[in-house]
Amino acid sequence: MILTQDSTQIEVTIHVNGTPHAVKTDPCVTLLDLLRDHLQLTGSKKGCDHGQCGACTVLLDGKRVNSCLVLAISREGSSVTTIEGLGSIANLHPLQSAFIRHDALQCGYCTPGQICSAIGLMLEGHAKSHDEIREGMSGNLCRCGAYIGIVEAIEDVMESESSREENR
């Protein structure tokens, strides 16, 4: 049993985008706050802090989750991928380029969460049709209403990945 005393800081090691980070934190710190405030990785956004918008979506051990509802301390040893770990300006992730091509954003606030969620959706492999992608992405709200472009961008990347598979 691991036990922390009242409001003592305890150390948690989390691998973020491939780099291990040992952080001393209070049990009440969420993964989102750990990323943003302790590691200065502010790509993941805090839209609602209650699981209702998806702006904080990251990949935790390969699965998309709302990082605002995860206590960081409970994820000792886990691996997190955030938008910062996906591509660089010189070498964008295919979904990042597709979002630009399809005009899948306006203000961009929801975009890091949308892209991490779309990667999770593709890894899950259950969404094939347009309707299934729309439904599978419903956990990511976009106040600018860029949904049409977002779904097109994901379909585009899914199609090019499956045609690459076929040519293999």
């Binding site: 049993m1 691991i2 036990l3 922390t4 005393q5 009242d6 409001s7 305890i10 209070d26 049990p27 009440c28 206590l71 301390i73 409970s74």
Partner: peptide, 15 residues
């Protein structure tokens, strides 16, 4: 959020 202690239970009996 109110402060709390955190424990990780390793067995059903312990939990």
């Amino acid at each position: 959020m109110k402060r709390f202690r955190y424990m990780k239970a390793v067995s059903v009996r312990e939990a």
